[in-house]
Design a protein around this nucleic acid. Structure first.
Lengths: 138, 138
DNA sequence: GTCTGTGCAAATTGTTTGCACGCAA
DNA sequence: TTGCGTGCAAACAATTTGCACAGAC
């Protein structure tokens, strides 16, 4: 990505970071993850670009965990698991999102349904192993 | 509820409000809804009690819509629809939450699954009627 | 007297925004 | 020279918290 025109270098870096990780990072996490490579990155830029990607449909905000928005660069619909112990957000790739229910939902609410989200919550493997204490799952 | 011992009067009022409405209110909405009956209610008290109910399992935070947490006093699992036009949160009582998938989710993530949330998003009847402008659905 | 629920206001925190600057066209 | 992406810091808004007080036991 160092070859990209300079004016998009940070934007591209943020998008790649988002697309290459499965941790469903918050703005802060993107910032922290990119800061070592891009020391002059600023948090405002991360927020600005994240919102831009969201408008463009390149990313979406999948949940607010402990008061912090979590983003996902994987825009294909999939199911998430949110650990209430360590705030990890994990893809459940084996499960199918119930998109077939969209029509049913539409007839229930009488409007237009454009998205559906299915997520489970509980304790991840590490957290459920160590009781209810917090763990730092990557 | 006026008969309740004075020290629980506000707490009870907040809980009843939450349980009697289907609008899935935010703290601010609870406050605004109760303020006419309870003029000396303070927003801090609403927040404090809402968090207490959440800990006690009497209520849950079902979503963050436009940066604001929305609460639900109906703790039985059910499906929601979130209107991106007017931020209304509507129960889809006809749809069954996919609780049968909990076990599947658990085997995927290897931890303990304690909750599942299914929600749809789009435009409600009013908003989809009037195009994309905002509407003030109650 | 102690404990609990509360009002009030200050503090905290995640997020947004205004402004000035620098590079690209 | 115009426009866009950005750093920086200030502004903002939702939520939490500290403190003092009142009523219940």
């Amino acid at each position: 990505m160092e070859r990209a025109p300079k004016q998009f270098r940070k934007r591209n870096a943020i998008l790649s970071y988002l697309q290459s990780t499965t941790e469903h990072p918050s703005a802060e996490m993107v910032y922290a993850g990119l800061k070592p490579q891009i020391p002059d990155l600023s948090l405002g830029t991360v927020y600005r670009n994240l919102n831009l990607f969201r408008q463009q449909g390149l990313a979406s905000c999948i949940a607010t965990v402990s008061g912090v928005e979590r983003f996902d660069g994987n825009t294909s619909p999939h199911v998430h698991f949110v650990c209430t112990g360590c705030d990890a957000v994990i893809d459940l790739t084996q499960l199918q999102p119930p998109e077939t229910l969209c029509n049913a939902a539409e007839s229930c609410c009488g409007g237009q349904v454009t998205g559906c989200q299915l997520s489970f919550s509980g304790l991840c493997r590490e957290c459920s192993g160590k009781g209810s204490e917090r763990c730092e799952t990557a």
